[in-house]
């Protein structure tokens, strides 16, 4: 069974491809735990999650997922070095106050980081801004300027630059446009980017 058919998210499909059988996995911002539940059932991973929202934490527990209720920017320091094989940060990077510090922590506690984020450089975002003159509003960035959870607006170019600055190794980069994978000119054409990083 394909993960996308179960969970309806293409980034989850890519993430699950990256994770081998039996890995130790931490999902930051794990929501209702559905990805971890899927990984447990299909990849026999040792699954842990961190989630801030109480209702989601309760749903994750009901799914039999080990989850810690806490703010992920402050809850990583407790984990020992190398505690996990893979640490997932999916669609959350743009909401973090200190994204680089969080990524550094992730690469301390995990051998690999899997980072998925919406690309602010996508052509629809650019056109929306160009023609409306207002903050871009697209399917991927549906919020008004005042109610967006996003505090950083990064593009694939920006992220590439940070990986070079931080001297992280990019093991794999994958791009999505809708449910279609792999695009030429990703910074213009990709809606979502998924990176596999290590220190």
């Amino acid at each position: 069974m394909q993960v996308r058919e179960v969970l309806g998210r293409s980034d989850y499909a890519l993430i699950s491809e990256l994770i081998p059988e039996g890995a130790r996995v931490l999902d930051l911002g794990c929501g209702d735990g559905s990805l971890l539940e899927w990984l447990k059932a299909n990849k026999k991973v040792e699954a842990r999650g961190v989630e801030l929202k109480r209702e989601l934490v309760q749903q994750a527990i009901s799914r039999g997922v080990t989850v810690y209720q806490g703010d992920l920017e402050n809850s990583l320091k407790e984990y020992p070095d190398g505690a996990f094989d893979y640490v997932i940060l999916s669609q959350t990077l743009q909401e973090l106050r200190q994204p680089l510090q969080v990524l550094q922590e992730i690469l301390r506690i995990g051998r690999y980081a899997i980072v998925a984020f919406p690309n602010f450089g996508h052509w629809r975002v650019r056109l929306s801004h160009l023609f409306s003159g207002g903050a871009p509003r697209t399917k991927l960035f549906p919020y008004g300027w005042h109610d967006s959870p996003n505090v950083h607006f990064l593009t694939i170019e920006d992220f590439e630059e940070s990986t070079r600055d931080q001297r992280w190794t990019v093991e794999k980069r994958m791009f999505l446009s809708g449910h279609t994978r792999g695009t030429a000119m990703p910074n213009l054409m990709a809606e979502v980017a998924v990176y596999l990083l290590r220190r």
Partner: peptide
């Protein structure tokens, strides 16, 4: 308690109920 357990990588679930 939870942080002490997490620091040794125990399997610990935590929830603060309202």
């Amino acid at each position: 308690i939870v942080n002490a357990l997490r620091s040794r990588n125990h399997d610990v679930t935590y929830c603060e109920l309202s």
